[in-house]
């Protein structure tokens, strides 16, 4: 039998001695890599919206927005207010995390007044008659450097009276 070429060790390079585990390491890494798109299919990395509702005596507040997003993504937060009685001055109070590390591209309809209240952002929309529905759309883009969890807290108030509130979170993947 001819000698093996230089640099070739038959035990290792032909008979694969000490290399049997390499196939399993390779398969393991491939499995981990394969899990990532699979998780993506199940919305693990966002940005499909989830709906949350909070019902008060005076009105019901609904929020439809993603709870998981990634850097640079465009997404929408949709607030719906359904008044059960006349609201004299409906306002949404947003936790500062709604704007921390985010670019707010547009907000429709424009509030009659915007102000800061104890660090939160207060958006006033004026009166809403009983039985009416009022929709607010916020269009966002996640800043690429924003990573981690954010509070998606929002409170619906009528003047200074608390009507309903939603407390949930948003996670930003890099």
């Amino acid at each position: 039998m001819a000698n093996a070429p230089e640099g070739i060790v038959l035990g290792r390079h032909r008979d694969l001695q000490g290399r049997k585990h390499q196939v399993w390491v390779r398969r393991g890494i491939l499995a981990v890599i394969g899990i990532v798109p699979l998780l993506g299919l199940f919305n693990f990395f966002g940005q499909r919206p989830t709906d949350t509702q909070a019902a008060g005596q005076a009105a019901t507040l609904s929020l439809s927005a993603p709870q998981r997003a990634r850097g640079g993504l465009l997404y929408q937060a949709h607030f719906t207010i359904e008044a059960h009685r006349d609201l004299e001055n409906a306002a949404l109070i947003l936790h500062p995390d709604w704007l921390q590390g985010m670019t707010l591209n547009t907000l429709e309809p424009s509030p009659t007044e915007e102000t800061s209240e104890n660090g939160a952002v207060r958006l006033e929309f004026g009166p809403i008659a009983s039985g009416n529905r009022f929709d607010v759309f916020l269009q966002y883009q996640v800043n690429p450097t924003a990573v981690g969890s954010r509070k998606q807290w929002v409170e619906l108030v009528d003047g200074q009276t608390r009507v309903a509130s939603i407390q949930r979170g948003l996670f930003l993947f890099p």
Partner: peptide, 19 residues
């Protein structure tokens, strides 16, 4: 990585090929 022998004396090493 490491080289792998796939033919010796004209004989194909199927196991290494499959790998």
């Amino acid at each position: 990585g490491e080289p792998i022998v796939i033919i010796q004396d004209g004989k194909v090493l199927d196991r290494n090929l499959r790998r």
